[in-house]
């Protein structure tokens, strides 16, 4: 079972991600029982069916070019929203996370998955991700354990962000010299 970091702890992933193969469509793809994270297109195509599933068993995942505003009114249906990073250097997911947290008020699990690396953990968490799922096999158990520390690379960032309520000049008394 794949592992991920959730609120700073390594946990087993018990969600199944649905992806559409070339020969599958949102309307026809088989949706197994259990906890399921579906692509945005599947949510749109089969909203009624999915909304009827047991509580806390539904999540949705967004690609970098998906617009989070499109699910702004659906957030209560999702126990997980995952944002895909096809390449870690594609920074659109940071804005998606920021919008979900600060504009649309999403409070559930917000997960980064795909090409997710420890060297971006600090930025990801500051933008509102509370779950970080590197690609399966990218890190050994030991490396993943060590990677948790990267979340805290910068202890007092200058800016406010989704996870940091105010900028440094509001949070602290500035000016004490070194």
């Amino acid at each position: 079972m794949p592992e991920l970091i959730q609120n700073g702890q390594i946990v087993q992933d018990d969600w199944t991600f649905v992806t559409l193969a070339d020969d599958q469509t949102a309307a026809s793809v088989e949706l197994p029982p259990g906890r399921l994270v579906v692509p945005l297109t599947v949510w749109f195509a089969r909203r009624d069916e999915l909304a009827g599933r047991p509580d806390a068993t539904l999540g949705v995942w967004l690609a970098p070019d998906d617009d989070p505003a499109e699910i702004a009114r659906d957030l209560s249906h999702f126990a997980v929203i995952a944002v895909h990073f096809p390449k870690f250097a594609d920074g659109r997911g940071y804005s998606i996370a920021t919008l979900l947290r600060t504009r649309f008020g999403y409070r559930g699990e917000l997960r980064a998955f795909g090409d997710v690396l420890r060297d971006q953990f600090n930025y990801l968490v500051r933008c509102g991700f509370d779950a970080l799922q590197p690609a399966d096999g990218r890190y050994s158990r030991e490396q993943l354990q060590a990677a948790v520390a990267s979340i805290g690379d910068f202890s007092q960032p200058y800016q406010h962000s989704a996870a940091v309520a105010s900028p440094l000049f509001q949070r602290t008394e500035r000016g004490a010299t070194v």
């Binding site: 870690f88 250097a89 594609d90 920074g91 940071y94 804005s95 920021t98 971006q120 600090n122 930025y123 990801l124 500051r126 933008c127 910068f154 960032p157 200058y158 800016q159 962000s161 900028p167 440094l168």
Partner: peptide, 14 residues
């Protein structure tokens, strides 16, 4: 400078 230093949202721009 301070605002742009390690701004978490804008470190991986196009």
């Amino acid at each position: 400078r301070q605002w742009s230093t390690f701004h978490p949202e804008f470190a991986y721009l196009p």
